[in-house]
Amino acid sequence: MAETFNLRINGAARQVVGDPDMPLLYALRGPLGLLGAKYGCGSEQCGSCSVLLDGERAFSCKITLAQAAASDILTIEGIGTEGNLHPLQSAFMEEHAFQCGYCTPGLIVTAKALLDQNPDPDDAAIATALRDNLCRCGSHGRVIAAVKRAAKELAP
């Protein structure tokens, strides 16, 4: 049965009515109108649906509404906007770190969690942080370069 959930998304309170077992992804892409998180596999294997829950990367295709309601949710839309890009977003553009771009929001969200915890990661640390995100176009090297560029930009 549908229930009402009070979510905290990108710093704002949002209310959603839905099944407690509905994955957060469908609330984001449906009633909440947040299209950045993508359906890729529905089984935590590709990372296209990544969001942050209390600063940790979570797969929104699996996390249920009931589970998500307890946490602060950050999506790609809360990281930066067209007029106010986050350094990760501008670095992805500058490094041309995508081709089709389907995996891009998930990668930026995951990289945000990394940089929040480790502001100066080396290539291996970045690759390890992104190992559960898939990219089929083969932009891996450019993604790593983009995350490094953003880390430099963010350095105090």
């Binding site: 947040l34 299209l35 950045g36 998180a37 999506t75 790609i76 839309e77 930066g80 906007t81 067209e82 890009l85 977003q89 501008s90 992805f92 553009m93 995508f98 771009g101 891009t104 929001p105 930026i108």
Partner: peptide, 8 residues
């Protein structure tokens, strides 16, 4: 590019 990096 902008739509792709901002989740548009």
């Amino acid at each position: 590019a902008v739509a792709k990096v901002t989740g548009g």
